[in-house]
Design a protein around this nucleic acid. Structure first.
Length: 279
DNA sequence: CATATGTCCTGAGAGC
DNA sequence: TGCTCTCAGGACATAT
């Protein structure tokens, strides 16, 4: 589930590792399916071991460690992954340990992933450029209203589905897409090419508002309890959700309609049929 | 090219 | 109680 706000919280949690040297790379193999690594484990170790972490960045829903050899370690948490300096939720699902040289704390940077859908890469500058410039759109918090519109307005897809496309705009996932569209008062099934100027302005305002608020609350921890912030505490934004997983509840905006759940592209969408009328 | 669908995975919760 | 089944969704491969 980690989307932009959760991954930004992870990035901030891991930021103290900047300036530290990675003395050891250890792929933990206690579970059935080992973590996906590119290039190979040996290639990863060769590029990463002994390097200093210059900087900790976020690329959409990924956490990036910029190394002093111009390579970049990129973690993809996907559904249940966590990048941590603190103790992991369980030892069982620990996937990767980067030991940090020296005796001061923190001593390890960890990748933990209960479901094992996450992966880790180390990219050369050219490989990183391919990711950021060819595979991903601009970051959802960096894109302005005009650029947001320009990138989506020709699409015939439903706006909800289009917001999940990382090649259009990077960082928005299933939870925040519903939250953003509710605040923007846009029906999730409306085709992008149908939206008008006021829609795009409201969408951009809502997008910024929801994502920055969610970062302020350190993300959303859902009922499965998987997502934790850097101090291994739950996020707080789940208590601010307007519509996500609230089917049958009262709309927090109008109070006069019930939140509805529909399925788009095999994913749940939640919205208020009254506030988010089809037109 | 744009868009749609199937797949990976584990554990929570539902239903019997 | 304990079993089986369904479902959650990020990113990518494959299909249309």
């Amino acid at each position: 589930m980690p989307e932009l706000p959760e991954v930004e919280t992870m990035r901030r949690g891991v930021a103290p590792a900047a300036g530290r040297t990675i003395s050891r790379v250890e792929f933990v193999r206690t579970q059935a399916r080992p973590i996906d690594v590119t290039p190979s484990r040996e290639g990863f170790r060769r590029r990463v071991a002994g390097r200093r972490i210059e900087q900790v960045d976020r690329i959409g829903k990924r956490v990036a460690l910029v190394l002093d050899n111009a390579h970049t370690v990129v973690f993809e948490p996907r559904m249940t992954g966590l990048v941590l300096l603190a103790d992991p939720p369980t030892q069982e699902h620990l996937r990767l340990v980067l030991t940090l040289a020296g005796s001061r704390s923190p001593r390890r940077l960890l990748f933990w992933d209960r479901r094992g859908l996450g992966c880790v890469h180390v990219y050369s500058p050219e490989e990183l450029r391919r990711l950021t410039e060819e595979k991903l759109g601009p970051d959802a918090l960096a894109v302005d209203a005009a650029a947001l519109r320009l990138r989506l307005e020709k699409s015939r897809r439903a706006i909800k589905t289009a917001l999940l496309d990382q090649a259009a705009v990077a960082g928005i996932g299933n939870l925040y897409a519903s939250e953003i569209l509710h605040l923007a008062r846009i029906h999730p099934e409306r085709p992008c090419c149908d939206l008008t100027g006021p829609h795009w302005r409201r969408l951009h305002t809502a997008l910024r508002h929801v994502l920055t608020e969610a970062i302020r609350y350190e993300g959303s921890t859902l009922s499965d309890g998987t997502y934790r912030n850097a101090l291994n505490k739950a996020g707080g934004y789940q208590n601010e959700h307007r519509v996500y997983d609230k089917a049958g509840g009262d709309c927090p905006t109008c109070g006069r309609a019930k939140i509805v759940r529909i399925v788009q592209a095999q994913r749940s969408t939640f919205f208020c049929p009254r506030c988010q009328a089809r037109r």
